[in-house]
Design a binder for these strands. Structure first.
Length: 242
DNA sequence: ACATTAATTATGT
DNA sequence: ACATAATTAATGT
């Protein structure tokens, strides 16, 4: 019932869209053309699901523009954001991990544009294109590392440090320089931050307020900019307890 | 050192 | 006007 379903059979997308992303970096121009012709391009409104946890993983995706939150939902509605996908990254690649359904949901945080392919093509690409497998598994590996680091943070660090780390990670992938510092390039609520750090929006709100008072950050609704990245890095480090 | 509850205010459509 | 976001204080574990 919403009008964002303008599925377009990939009309003349340029090969340069793919040539810079790792998984396709080793392909020839003709091969890129072939891959692109099999892709579907779609636009998504902000806040809609690209796919849902548990659904048949019939396609895999690449984000061209926008931001995707990869999240799971607890027994009663509590969101856990496990990952943010910046443009140029593959996501929904359940097939690469041997899954038949998506292990998490992918939600757009802003209006986004994505390419997608039928999952069957994954195996074909792996077999056919030199470097597709190795390169894409590299990025999968990097993502696993990120998540591992995140788990360590959740388990060992204090709330203040976790939130600092979350903000730093976000600035690394979506940071945009502005006059007063580095702004995070997409709408981010306290709720979102708390969902990434396993705390509550209230605690996040209090902390941000405190940091704002000290001039470390500034924030409007859904927009956070870091004024003193260096101080934030310090806060993100665990303090020795003796 | 943090969550929870609840009341209050600000902000975007 | 309405819903969603953010702040703040009080209270609980």
């Amino acid at each position: 019932m919403d009008s964002n379903t303008n599925l377009k059979p990939t009309q003349r997308l340029d090969e340069s869209l793919l040539s810079h992303i790792p998984a396709f970096s080793r392909l020839q121009k003709a091969q890129l053309r072939e891959v692109l012709d099999q892709a579907t391009c779609k636009r998504y409104d902000a806040g809609v699901a690209v796919f849902d946890e548990g659904a048949q993983a019939d396609r895999f995706y690449m984000l061209l523009d926008g931001v995707i939150e990869v999240m799971r939902i607890g027994p009663l509605g509590e969101r856990v954001i496990s990952l943010h996908i910046p443009p140029g990254q593959l996501f929904g690649i359940a097939k690469a991990l041997g899954h038949v359904t998506y292990p998490a949901s992918a939600i757009t945080t802003v209006e986004s544009i994505g390419l997608s392919w039928p999952t069957i093509l994954w195996d074909e690409y792996v077999a056919k294109y030199e470097g597709f497998a190795t390169e894409s598994y590299k990025t999968v590996g990097a993502r696993v590392n990120e998540m591992n680091a995140h788990i360590m943070e959740l388990a060992t660090l204090h709330v203040e440090q976790r939130i600092a780390n979350a903000l730093l990670r976000l600035t690394n992938q979506a940071g945009h320089k502005v006059a007063t510092g580095i702004e995070i390039n997409f709408p981010l609520t306290r709720q979102d931050l708390s969902d990434m750090t396993g705390t509550t929006l209230h605690t996040v709100s209090r902390l941000l307020s405190a940091w704002q008072r000290v001039g470390l950050v500034t924030s409007k609704r859904k927009r956070i900019t870091i004024c003193r990245p260096h101080q934030l890095v310090e806060l993100s480090q665990a303090k020795p307890s003796y």
